Amino acid sequence: MFYWLLKFVLLGPLLRMIFRPRAEGTENVPLEGPAILASNHLSYADWLFMPLVIPRRVTFVAKAEYFETPGIKGRLQRLFFSGSGQVPIDRSGATAAAGALKTQLRLLRAGEVCGIYPEGTRSHDGRLYRGRTGVARLALESGVPVIPVAVVGTDRIAPPGKKFGTFTRPLVRFGTPLDFSRYEGMSEDRYILRSITDEIMYEIMRLSDQEYVDMYATQAKELAKEQAKEQARAKADAGEVDAERKAS
């Protein structure tokens, strides 16, 4: 109930009035029954705008810690995350990934729509990165179609690493549902999982017009950090040499 209050009564109208989000392909999202929405991930604002343009509740899994903070702050945090369509990861699994899969399977079997970001983390530079195979495993174990989604413009509204961005009209594109029933019973085959994931990422790339990088986003972020450190060291060394030259 609070989800609908937050989406349609409180937060939704405000976001619609300010940003006027656009949508394409909403007819590809079923009005009832389970579905997996696999989206690119440009900004922390993605999970606000993608569900806003369709009438269905979209559920994402989140860290259990978000729901376990004590005190008034914790209660408000739980209320917000629960109300915005997020549920805690089932931590009875061996890993966080296993817990997330277990939670999402439960939701899909209950007929809900699950949102997932195959890249696993936000893109730091606007490019689309290699997908994690969890989305493929989820599709095969649930038997539910995957709808590729591209969110465009949210990285300008809420850029990674910055508090404020610029006002723009975000666009959410929903692609044609992808059916992987031909691979039923093959959820343990890593080559099949990779093939399915790559097919999903190709459709997201086509919808978003992003440049694709065949590297995990986490690896790319670490590489960018190392390059930034090297550039800073080189700049500092150059400054020291210049200071020595002037002193002599």
Score class of each variant (00 low, 15 high):
Leu76Arg: 09
Thr133Gly: 00
Arg16Asp: 09
Arg190Ile: 15
Glu32Gln: 13
Glu222Trp: 06
Val151Met: 01
Pro148Asp: 03
Glu65Val: 12
Glu240Arg: 13
Arg169Gln: 10
Pro170Cys: 10
Ser187Ile: 05
Ser39Leu: 05
Ile200Phe: 00
Ala94Pro: 02
Pro159Lys: 15
Arg182Ala: 07
Arg22Val: 04
Pro159Met: 15
Gly33Asp: 11
Ile72Gln: 03
Trp47Asn: 04
Arg20Glu: 08
Asp198Phe: 01
His124Cys: 14
Leu138Ala: 03
Gly185Trp: 08
Ser43Pro: 02
Glu199Thr: 05
Ala136Cys: 00
Ile192Glu: 11
Arg156Ala: 13
Ala158Pro: 03
Leu107Gln: 03
Thr176Tyr: 07
Pro51Leu: 05
Ile72Pro: 01
Phe67Arg: 02
Gln210Thr: 04
Gly175Thr: 09
Tyr183Asn: 12
Ala35His: 03
Asp90Ser: 02
Ala247Arg: 04
Phe81Ser: 13
Pro55Ile: 02
Ser43Ala: 11
Thr95His: 12
Ala158Ser: 13
Phe81Asn: 09
Leu108Arg: 01
Lys225Glu: 15
Thr133Glu: 13
Ser92Ile: 02
Ser208Ile: 07
Glu230Arg: 01
Gly239Pro: 00
Arg122His: 10
Arg156Phe: 07
Glu226Leu: 15
Thr95Ile: 07
Ala38Thr: 01
Asp237Trp: 09
Gly185Ile: 05
Ala23Glu: 15
Asp46Ser: 10
Thr168Leu: 02
Pro148Tyr: 06
Asp209Thr: 14
Pro159Trp: 14
Val149Ile: 12
Gly93Ile: 04
Asn28Gly: 07
